[in-house]
Design a protein around this nucleic acid. Sequence first.
DNA 1: CTTGCTGCAAAAGGTTTGCAGCTCC
DNA 2: GGAGCTGCAAACCTTTTGCAGCAAG
Lengths: 152, 152
Amino acid sequence: VQQPVLNRKDLRQRISEAGLKATHQRIVIYEALQQLHGHPAAEDVFQLLKPANPSISLGTVYKSLDSFVEAGLIKRVLSAAGSRRYDTNCQPHSHIYCCNTNEIIDFTDPELEQLMQDFFSRKKLENFELASVFVQITGKKNDPGKDIVIRN
Amino acid sequence: VQQPVLNRKDLRQRISEAGLKATHQRIVIYEALQQLHGHPAAEDVFQLLKPANPSISLGTVYKSLDSFVEAGLIKRVLSAAGSRRYDTNCQPHSHIYCCNTNEIIDFTDPELEQLMQDFFSRKKLENFELASVFVQITGKKNDPGKDIVIRN
DNA sequence: CTTGCTGCAAAAGGTTTGCAGCTCC
DNA sequence: GGAGCTGCAAACCTTTTGCAGCAAG
């Protein structure tokens, strides 16, 4: 986790500034996104919130996450299995997908981002409006309990 | 399309050599994959085959495609929307997703593949067994009827 | 007060499963 | 003849939808 964890007051403000109503549900949904690692699915968020918010509904979680994505507060990413997962990190970065744990791990490497940017500013795709370029790394952790360590 | 289009006799052999029974259904399913462009979904294959093969079932298409993937004959890829699509091109290459047409277009660029290979042979990920690295390009065709042209 | 959001429940994809019968080898 | 595959239908899982009522601004 490299970005600041926001408290409820800041979350309320952030959601408001994005043009959305800062409802209690949305605040706790965003809070859950910050707490869950490995890029949670809507269901993961729902399961985390249900004990403390018994009346929250899965549909609301889906709708709120959609609203956040549309407002640019979070990003939607796909797991290698095709399910939708959510990412509070809006900085350019790549993802490592672990087939063992089904986790999606952030891989932030300025050198790689630079490499991609250089390549695609040189290579012109005609008849195509480029929206995004990212690198997807797939494999599996040897020890699922431990983190991945990057060495240059 | 950069790889040879196989006729039924060759397909039969290819499927057999992969350790699978060369049934009529599998042969026509593979044939359909070769004919369809933009990386078809199981449903696309089914729709193409149904007129000439009225008794074929969608379940068989799913199972055959899975068998092909497991045997290494084809690859499974995800559309930007998360649905499963199939690719007969097993050479290393990247994909361009068009959000307008939902097509997946092959982007084969030796320079890019080399760049990726160099980068990841240098960058070591400890506690992680790397399976694949690929670049995902997203955007939209300006004229959906025309192809994308790549200029260096 | 009014717009936008929530909860519910039903529906909609897309994919998988179980199994009896059929085909390929 | 036997293992493996097919067709069918039901089940499954994830996501979307419609709508009446509620809460935020």
